[in-house]
Nucleic acid binder design. Structure first.
Lengths: 165, 165
DNA sequence: TTGGAGTGTCAACAAAGCTGACGTATTATA
DNA sequence: TATAATACGTCAGCTTTGTTGACACTCCAA
């Protein structure tokens, strides 16, 4: 039915195989968020709070604008989340020393503690998945994920790893 | 710094590596949904419509209850989406012959056509990612994704492949 | 004929995204 | 120094997609 042409001969990709990849991505992402979601639900927080906490942990002292760019949401949307996190004492917003218009964001001790609970849950699942899939699968997993990102996302993803290391 | 113990010697999994996997999953999922989202936005539809269309395509004649289970949302939530799709002539709801309480859902020609546009976009990205990552990465990608699913999700995922083949 | 399953609908609400507009510091620039 | 631009916060209002709860209808089976 399909004859591999010379250019694509390395990979037979039927529509059905691609469709399975799409569905795997969908169901896996639900698993990926399930554990933190359960924790967040008990605290009246949502995924938006988790994302903010995650990236503040990742890049302590980040500015609001920077976080906005990473998350790709509007200022108003992020602000609503940030406001509750600051009010609840999980995030601290300090006026920047170099430019007093900017705010540097940090996790408080309570914020670190929640971040730990959330990322522990997520890491545990990720670790289990890696174990189950085997070491030779992990590199492939990461490669495909990186290739699936938009150019802009890939830039943000990479910049976190350079700046955050 | 780390000494592999006998039990985990196959895989060195630092928290940092796991964290990178988590972020890769987050950014990749955004890429994964970006193309259909753009198409849907021009039609005043959202991801919920896409998911319904996708799984009706996948299992034509599926009942509402079955779809509910796959998607994991409430009846009311799905019904709202289904109602607009039926009103817009993309989905057809036929009373089941065997049990007249049930409705069997099908895509109309227009529905098939939109499904094609959406899954074409998604498959194109998936295919490109597979190519870029290389054939040896694809199997690993799929293995990790499957291992990341919840038990229930994995069941649904598998049942689609048995029933849908 | 009666109970329960499958389905659909109404109402009300919440989370989290969006746009637009405006205010206020603060910094940069002409 | 006056003006423009930047960073941030907030108000108001809208959308999508999820949630509960209540209720009605059809139809199958006991």
């Amino acid at each position: 039915m399909r004859e591999p042409t010379s250019g694509e001969s390395l990979l037979y990709l039927t529509d059905e195989q691609l469709r399975q990849g799409i569905e795997a991505m969908y169901f896996a992402y639900r698993g990926f968020t399930a554990d933190p979601d359960r924790i967040l639900a008990t605290l009246a927080y949502g995924r938006a709070h988790h994302r903010a906490i995650h990236f503040i942990k990742r890049a302590p002292g980040t500015t609001v604008t920077n976080l906005l760019e990473i998350l790709g949401v509007t200022k108003q949307s992020l602000n609503r989340v940030l406001r509750t996190l600051i009010a609840d004492g999980l995030v601290e917003s300090r006026v920047s020393a170099s430019d007093r218009r900017e705010r540097n964001l940090f996790l408080t001790e309570a914020g670190e503690s929640l971040e730990n609970r959330l990322s522990d849950a997520q890491r545990t699942r990720m670790r289990a998945a890696y174990r189950e899939a085997g070491p030779e699968s992990v590199a492939g997993f990461r490669k495909v994920l990186e290739a699936m990102m938009d150019g802009e996302m890939k830039r943000r993803y990479s910049s976190l790893r350079e700046g955050g290391a």
